[in-house]
Design a protein around this nucleic acid. Structure first.
Length: 492
RNA sequence: GCCCCCAUCGUCUAGAGGCCUAGGAUUCGUGGUUCUCAGCCACGCGACAGGGGUUCGAAUCCCCUUGGGGGUACCA
């Protein structure tokens, strides 16, 4: 399948990959993949001072993690400098732009004065009116400093936005904006148009924050006689307070979510649903489904709030559905990083380990949950959680007696399988005339240190006989110690 | 200040004049299942910003107000 659709994501490498940027990239990517088009990546590094190679790398990492692969190699905006300058020259040539010799100080003074009067100020075209073309050329040759401004024609600038519909700007509201600085370097609005045209971009999909750049850019396309791309302005992503998403709302870079234990495809799913809706009541999508259903027509006009709780829910859903093998690749490094176990050990017990992952994945929303829950199966000694013991080890003496009896039963189980373990435990409970829970809960703490775990028989299965008995043996002295404390305590 | 965009439950959204006493998801609450938690299953709380029009009929179309966001750089 081939198509003429060519889109691009054009981040400036002045920070990490922001979730808003990632979402914009995703929409571009989805459209390209949907139609067999090309998704290009252009680093807008014209602002040398603020751009760093590290940030470029971080953005690439983020995209790669999300699975957003780009075509045709990386483009650096800075590499197009000569073309940008040539395009400015052409603008000058065709009379769509003019040199402005007003110094920055004059502009600033006028602007400040206007602000004082609470008025808007746009460049007053002094140099367009007062400096004839030949005079302008002469001054330029003599080395008088100047900037180049685009001469905005009368009338209005309109376009059909793929998400907003018909858009209309009165040209008198558009300033004769600068495209070339005094130092001869081009400005963003020029570079973008030059690059997009050069890269034969068919659809410019970007955030709503670029809406007011668009009429300016369209003027450049028209002045140069270039075909205009389709513009699609996608809604911005806001924080929980409705303000633009920023650091104070919490994590804003995709890297942070990666570290936090969000699955890349859960992130993609979540981001896709932020400002886009398939129109159905479904929410869990894998990437191929997203690709086949994505359509710019279904993109929302209103901005969306980034809701971390929903992300985590979605992540939990994807974790539950993920195969143990897929989880293995992601969880294992984290587990190893805790120092509880090494890779070789896990490899030796691969089958057991995969079953454990299957056991734990149902109740994990993030990988931090995963690691925490996996601890008891690797730790040498368990730590007993306070709120767990307070609840189910309230009477240490009694608990100890129960565990001793239970240990005895477990020791005699022939085949360490759920089918034998369950009757063993329930049988004992029956003989003691107590509910099974009276044995299960204290046992859970002895085995895991926690009040929360998978079903107890599954835990027993995963622990194995040896470890189970060891854990019970280790719990008994601890219970004795606690029993002594209880005895001492006045009033109990 | 000026220009632009936007406006359905707390949040993500369905809804393109009658199917809407507004649907789903999430969150929260209650109950059920069960050895805990998660899950799952029920149920519940919860919205068309306000005001004018247009129309037999408006969440849906128009206008105004209000609110929110963006832009207003020799940044990108």
């Amino acid at each position: 399948m081939s198509s003429d659709i060519r889109v691009r994501f054009a981040p400036s490498p002045t920070g990490f990959l922001h979730v808003g940027g990632a979402r914009t990239a995703l929409f571009n990517w989805l459209l390209a993949r949907r139609h067999g088009g090309a998704f290009l990546l252009r680093i807008e590094d014209t602002d040398r001072a603020r751009s760093t190679a590290e940030m470029t790398e971080a953005i690439l990492d983020g995209l790669t993690w999300l699975g957003l692969d780009w075509d045709e190699g990386l483009v650096h905006q800075a590499d197009g400098l000569e073309r940008h300058e040539a395009d400015v020259a052409r603008l000058l040539e065709v009379g769509a732009a003019y040199r402005c010799f007003c110094g920055a100080d004059r502009i600033e003074a006028e602007r400040a004065a206007a602000a004082e009067r609470k008025e808007a100020w746009r460049y007053d075209r002094l140099c367009l009116r007062e400096v004839p073309r030949d005079e302008s050329e002469r001054r330029a040759r003599e080395g008088v400093p100047f900037v180049v401004r685009v001469r905005i024609p009368d009338g209005e600038t309109t376009w059909e936005d793929a998400v907003h519909g018909p858009m209309r700007f009165a040209n008198e509201d558009i300033e004769d904006f600068i495209v070339l600085r005094t130092d001869g370097t081009p400005i963003y609005n020029l570079a973008v148009v030059s690059d997009d045209a050069h890269m034969r971009i068919s659809h410019v999909i970007r955030g709503d924050d670029h809406l007011s750049n668009t009429p300016k850019q369209i003027q450049i396309y028209r002045a140069l006689g270039w075909p205009e791309p389709v513009f699609a302005h996608v809604p911005m992503i806001l924080g929980s307070d409705g303000k633009r998403l920023s650091k104070r709302h919490g994590a804003t870079s995709v890297g942070e979510y990666r570290e936090r234990g969000i699955l890349s495809w859960a992130m993609v799913n979540f981001l896709a649903l932020l400002g886009w809706s398939p129109g159905q009541d479904e929410e869990i999508f894998d990437v191929p489904e997203l690709i086949s259903r994505f359509d710019l027509a279904d993109v929302q006009k209103r901005s969306a709030v980034f809701d971390t709780r929903k992300l985590e829910w979605l992540n939990g859903q994807h974790i539950s559905r993920a195969s143990a093998e897929a989880l293995d690749a992601i969880v294992t490094p984290r587990l190893v990083a805790t120092g509880l176990v090494d890779e070789a050990t896990l490899a030796d017990r691969k089958e057991w380990y995969l079953r454990l992952l299957d056991l734990l994945k149902v109740r994990a929303r993030t990988f931090d949950d995963f690691v925490r829950q996996a601890r008891p199966y690797f730790e040498k000694d368990v730590e007993y959680e306070e709120d767990a013991t307070r609840k189910h080890w309230r009477r240490p003496e009694e608990v100890a007696a129960h565990l001793v009896a239970l240990r005895d039963r477990f020791a005699r189980v022939e085949d360490w399988r759920q089918e034998e373990l369950e009757p063993a435990l329930r049988g004992l409970a029956h003989e003691l005339g107590i509910g099974a829970g009276k044995l299960i809960h204290p046992l859970r703490i002895a085995l895991t240190g926690m009040a929360v775990s998978p079903g107890i028989f599954e835990v027993l299965g995963a622990m194995g006989r040896e470890r189970t008995l060891e854990r019970i043996d280790a719990a008994l002295p601890e219970l004795d110690r606690r029993a002594a404390l209880v005895a001492e305590a006045p009033g109990g």
